[in-house]
Amino acid sequence: RADKQHVLDMLFSAFEKHQYYNLKDLVDITKQPVVYLKEILKEIGVQNVKGIHKNTWELKPEYR
């Protein structure tokens, strides 16, 4: 399990490339446990629960 700041850096870097990611792809990118990753994502992102981007994560507007 990596340092939180290191995980945040990896996530922000990923979100610079694409606006939406599913959790599986973010786990592959960060190599972090799902529960730990979700904890961090809830602080900086929102999970889309409907629409064409259903079940994906994106950054909260203040982090874009």
Rank of each mutant, 00 (worst) to 15 (best):
V46Q: 15
E43W: 02
N48C: 13
Q19N: 12
K50C: 11
L8R: 14
T56K: 14
D9Y: 06
E58L: 05
Y63C: 09
P61R: 08
K38P: 00
V27P: 00
E58K: 09
V34A: 14
D28Q: 04
V27D: 00
D28E: 15
Q5I: 06
F15A: 01
K17T: 05
G45A: 14
E16V: 04
E62A: 13
F15G: 00
Q19C: 06
Y36D: 07
Y21V: 12
Y20L: 06
K24W: 06
A2G: 15
I52N: 09
L41P: 00
D28L: 09
P33L: 01
F15I: 04
F15E: 01
I52L: 14
A2K: 15
K17D: 08
V35M: 13
W57L: 05
K54C: 11
D28S: 13
L26I: 03
L23Y: 04
W57V: 06
T56Q: 14
Y21R: 14
T56Y: 11
K54Q: 09
D3N: 15
N22Y: 13
G51H: 05
Q32G: 02
H6I: 15
T30K: 00
V27I: 14
T56N: 07
E62M: 11
Q32F: 11
L8Y: 07
V35L: 11
N55D: 14
P33F: 00
R64K: 11
V35N: 08
L11S: 01
K31L: 05
M10S: 07
K42H: 07
D9G: 08
R64S: 14
K54W: 04
T56D: 13
K24I: 07
Y20K: 09
G45M: 03
K42T: 10
V46N: 08
D28H: 11
Y36I: 08
L23F: 06
K4Y: 09
I29H: 07
F12H: 02
I52V: 12
S13G: 14
W57M: 04
V7W: 02
K4L: 05
L41H: 01
S13D: 15
K38Q: 11
V7P: 01
E58T: 13
K31N: 15
F12Q: 09
G45K: 03
H18V: 09
Y63M: 13
Y20P: 02
Q5A: 10
E16I: 02
I52R: 13
N22V: 10
N55H: 07
P61K: 13
Y36Q: 13
L37H: 01
V35E: 15
E39W: 04
A2F: 07
Y36K: 13
E43H: 03
Y20E: 09
V49N: 08
Y20I: 04
Y21W: 12
K50S: 13
Y63L: 10
I52T: 08
L23N: 00
A14E: 04
Y20V: 08
N22E: 13
K38M: 15
T56V: 10
W57N: 02
L59D: 01
L8F: 05
K31E: 12
V27M: 13
W57H: 02
K38T: 14
Q19H: 13
K54D: 10
L11E: 00
L59I: 07
G45T: 05
V27F: 03
L26E: 00
Q5F: 09
K42E: 12
G45L: 02
G45P: 01
N55K: 08
Y36E: 12
K38F: 06
Q19M: 09
Y63I: 08
N48W: 04
L23D: 03
D3I: 13
E43P: 02
H6E: 15
H53A: 09
L59T: 01
P33K: 07
D3P: 06
E43T: 09
I29S: 03
N55E: 11
G51T: 06
S13P: 03
V27K: 11
Y63G: 04
E16C: 07
V34G: 12
E58Q: 09
V49Q: 12
K38C: 10
P33R: 04
E16T: 07
N55A: 09
K24T: 13
Y63E: 05
D3V: 08
I44D: 00
H6R: 15
K4A: 05
Q19A: 14
K60E: 02
E58N: 12
Q32I: 08
D28G: 13
A2L: 14
T30V: 05
Q32H: 06
A2M: 14
L41V: 05
L11D: 02
L26M: 03
K4S: 07
K24L: 09
K50D: 12
P33H: 03
A2Y: 06
K54R: 09
G45R: 03
Q32R: 06
W57D: 02
P61G: 12
Y36L: 10
Y21E: 01
K54P: 10
H18E: 14
K60M: 04
H6F: 13
E43K: 05
Q5L: 06
L37D: 00
W57E: 02
Q32D: 01
L59W: 01
K50Y: 07
A2Q: 14
T56M: 14
H6A: 15
R1F: 15
L11T: 00
L41C: 02
K54T: 10
H53V: 07
A14Q: 04
D25T: 08
M10Y: 02
R64C: 10
A2N: 05
M10T: 08
F12P: 00
E16Y: 05
S13I: 10
